[in-house]
Every structure is written in C-alpha cells, then in structure tokens.
C-alpha cells in the first residue's frame, strides 16, 4: 500500500517493515519498548505531514482522538445483550 504522499512511499515501506516485525516479535510478546522504529517513524511522519498539508487535509480532524473517549459512538441498546 502506497503512502498518501507519493514521495513518502519508500519511507512508508521501511517503516511498515520495521513496525510489522516490532509488532509481532516484540509488542505482542509483551515488550513495550517502541524505540526500535522511532527514528524511521519520525522521518516518515514528517513526510506524511507535508503531504497532508499539500493535500489540504484537516489536521484538526486527524489529531482528534475519538476511540476510547466520550465522543466514541455507542452501540444502541437492544433487548438481548
């Protein structure tokens, strides 16, 4: 999958690789130290942010956390469960 910024796709691939091995080999095994990919993440994120600016993507909407907050939509009540 390519990045939303064409120029970030290479960085994305590098980060994806790092992330995926960190996720399966460390994180899922209880190792929460995420420093392994932090430097590539930073570079990649800067690239994506630039691409987002160019595409006029609303940062406010992106930075807003919803999951795990009161703003998260709730499942409507039903008879069962």
């Amino acid at each position: 999958m390519n990045s939303i910024g064409e120029e970030c796709t290479d960085l994305k691939k590098k980060y994806d690789d790092c992330f995926n091995s960190w996720f399966s080999e460390r994180f899922l095994k209880g190792d929460h130290d995420d420093s392994v990919c932090s430097s590539i993440f930073k570079v990649y994120q800067d690239c994506v942010k630039n691409a987002m600016k160019q595409q006029n993507i609303d940062f406010k909407e992106i930075d807003k956390d919803v999951l795990g907050t009161d703003n998260e939509f709730k499942v409507p009540p039903t008879e069962n469960s």
């Binding site: 999958m1 939303i4 994120q45």
Partner: peptide, 21 residues
C-alpha cells in the same frame, strides 16, 4: 480509497498507546 492515511495514523496510535501503557 485513502486508507493509507488511516494506516499511517493507526500505527502512530499503536505507538502512542504503547507509550502510555
């Protein structure tokens, strides 16, 4: 179509959540 942005963010969130764990 633009799930790339979402994926980017998701990963970021995973990392964030790890930091706060």
């Amino acid at each position: 179509d633009a799930a790339a942005a979402a994926t980017d963010r998701a990963k970021h969130n995973v990392l964030s959540s790890v930091n706060t764990t």
